[in-house]
Amino acid sequence: MQHKRNTQTSFFFGSLIIAFAASAVALHMIASPVACAGDLTMAEFQELHEQLQVSADKPWRTIPWKTAMLDAQHTAAQQAKPIFIWAMDGHPLGCT
């Protein structure tokens, strides 16, 4: 009986140690900027993600482009202005 209690106690503390170690590893994976997908690190991900965003003040992005001919026609009719059409293969505001 005593032997069984000691085994249960050892098992309990052993499990605690394993759980603690697993938690530490999990926390490390979440918080640390070390490699997570081969060579691509969290630090590199953050740097590239920031770098690969279009600046909102690019001149072409400040133009109030419409994306439908009929929408442009309605405004042109209302404001008595000519329509300027930028027609490309692939959408000129995106895609390429």
Binding site: K66, T67, A68, K81, F84, W86, A87, D89, P92
Partner: peptide, 14 residues
């Protein structure tokens, strides 16, 4: 000019 004198529209003509 596009902001003030025209109605600009951008389309994928395909």
């Amino acid at each position: 000019l596009l902001k003030t004198r025209f109605v600009p529209v951008a389309i994928d003509q395909a």
